[in-house]
Design a protein around this nucleic acid. Structure first.
Lengths: 167, 167
DNA sequence: TATTGTTATACTCTATAACTATA
DNA sequence: TATAGTTATAGAGTATAACAATA
């Protein structure tokens, strides 16, 4: 058995399981709140948040897709929903006619403002109520390192260029 | 602004974002591997793993559902898929005719054995390669505390009784 | 040719409610 | 009545591939 595939030791397993369980439960609770309080999916919330934080509240579709991980078509779908509700607008980019600029509207910002307090309440109750300041620091530092490492890693083992065609 | 909804401080935000980002990327990578290597969804993998760890490889549907969070019907769906592939069996419980006992088959254990090394490789590469032993310990301890706190918390603010009907 | 984005489509998953049966 | 599980069904979300337009 190569060291790469040797079983994880007890500490590692505990950390792995705890991480997955905590994030799953937290995600679930957050999703539920966003849906109930603002009729938003998590992705939609993330899109609005990213736009809110961007200069002038605007980003290209591609930049959004890079951040939100999902496929282009998935982003188009979600953006379509947000646009229908008047929470964002889409318009062609002036400098590159292929690109589309997405912008938050006032209504979008209002919705975020309305939803954010409850969102924070959920996160605080589930994640931070059981942690001391030093725990939070350590958690952020360790997970920050992991994240940086993940992002630096090659973007997944080179996705298959094309799906093998069925002739 | 009540202290409950006061914005999260910088340390908290960093920890929260890092947690969600790390878990999302890890989950994504794991899902991809499980699908490619064993044609398993994450839920299916979890079901098989739980059964593998249970005495005699058997559990009731309800016990499985409690662990895997999802709704009863969702579990029935996933169990149906696993049963079709011969990875589990379902049979009525002898002591309580209402219950169904789910059991891993040999094929199920074989599949787990085949998939696990790659699973470990993914987790190790993404999560543990950037961490020292002490980091792992701390991470497990802190997140373990959070998990225990989450589980102790009241089961979400009383679910809405019925969906408002559209007449 | 490569990039940006949309559309069409098919599929997976999840949840709700209604239902059966057993306790 | 309450519990265990299934089924029917409907909806949300995602991905793939084909497509159009621009660089």
């Amino acid at each position: 058995m190569s060291p790469e595939t040797a079983p994880l030791d007890a500490e590692q397993l505990a950390a792995y399981f705890a991480l997955m369980e905590v994030s799953t439960l937290l995600q679930h609770a957050v999703d539920e709140h966003l849906r109930a309080d603002g009729d938003l999916s998590n992705v939609q919330f993330q899109i609005l948040m990213r736009l809110s934080g961007a200069p002038e509240g605007r980003l290209r579709m591609t930049d959004l897709a890079d951040g939100v991980v999902y496929s282009r078509s998935g982003l188009t779908y979600q953006a379509g929903l947000l646009e229908q509700r008047g929470l964002i607008t889409r318009s062609p980019a002036p400098d590159d006619e292929r690109s589309v600029i997405v912008a938050v509207t006032g209504a979008g910002r209002d919705l975020i403002a309305r939803v954010l307090p409850g969102h924070i309440r959920v996160v605080r109750r589930l994640l931070f109520d059981s942690l001391q300041a030093t725990d939070v620091e350590v958690l952020g530092a360790v997970l920050g390192r992991v994240r940086d490492h993940m992002r630096a890693a090659p973007p997944r083992s080179a996705r298959p260029r094309t799906r093998r065609a069925k002739p």
